[in-house]
Amino acid sequence: MDSLIAPPATPEGAVTKIEFRNIQKVYRVKKENGGGYDDFVVLKDFNLDVYAGEFLTLVGPSGCGKSTLLDLLAGLIPLSGGEIRIDGRIIDGPAMDRGFVMQAYALFPWLNVQANVEFGLTIKKVPKKERRAISGHFLELVGLTAFANRYPHELSGGMKQRVAIARALAFDPEVLLMDEPFAALDAQTRETLQDELLDLWEKTGKTVVFVTHSIDEAVYLADRIAVLASNPGRLIELVNIKLSRPRQGSRGSAEFGWIRHKIWRYLQNDEGGQEPIPELGVPNVAEVIDSRAAL
């Protein structure tokens, strides 16, 4: 088992990039029957370290606070308790050391593709010539050079998300935050974009924090998966994914299926939390290793 997934152990030489310390997030909601407020706990005692350059996915059911966690990390909403640090500095608001990619693309419809990619650079007051060079580079990376002068409404969903990724990378953030970026895409486009994203990640060396509700997507992309449970949102399991990269074609493999099932079991078991996961008659550790050897 340890050959494929392992409990969280600090890998050798890993440098901590992001620290979540005792994160609390509470929303005040109006009581249903008349006056007063109830506290709705979205996140409780959440602790996590994200290593520099790693691809971390947050997976969990809706309402587990995974998107809230990303908004907190982006500095878009205030914490109710605890602190988040990047390179040891406490986060107190949004800044360009983090790039955010959303499910809804959020491209500016009045700007063409190139101007969208350059948006953050304009905010940074990068001179025009330099801006052109940078946007050209990233449009080439996402394969949209020919579409530089098109407007968002002329693009397909997959192309829009490529532009959004290029826009987030263009101002050179250290961390890329992705909130279910591929959830609105069709299955084929999603898989293509997953591969493109891994490619970009390897080329740029960014730290990626990726939220998804798809176990399959989480396993395919991640170095590590943080499994969250809801009510209140909390971390129940941290899983190292030791599938070798590149992972094209690995989805059908026994190892992949086994890890996916394991994560699924964690999510099923979130009530008890500590209960051991039964071995279910699916390939056990030895078998998995055997089948790998056979390949």
Partner: peptide, 21 residues
């Protein structure tokens, strides 16, 4: 669209820039 505002805010954009851009 609040998503556009969120997107701009995530880049650390201030009130005036948000209004203008």
């Amino acid at each position: 669209d609040s998503v556009l505002i969120k997107s701009a805010r995530s880049m650390g954009v201030g009130d005036l820039t948000l209004l203008w851009k």
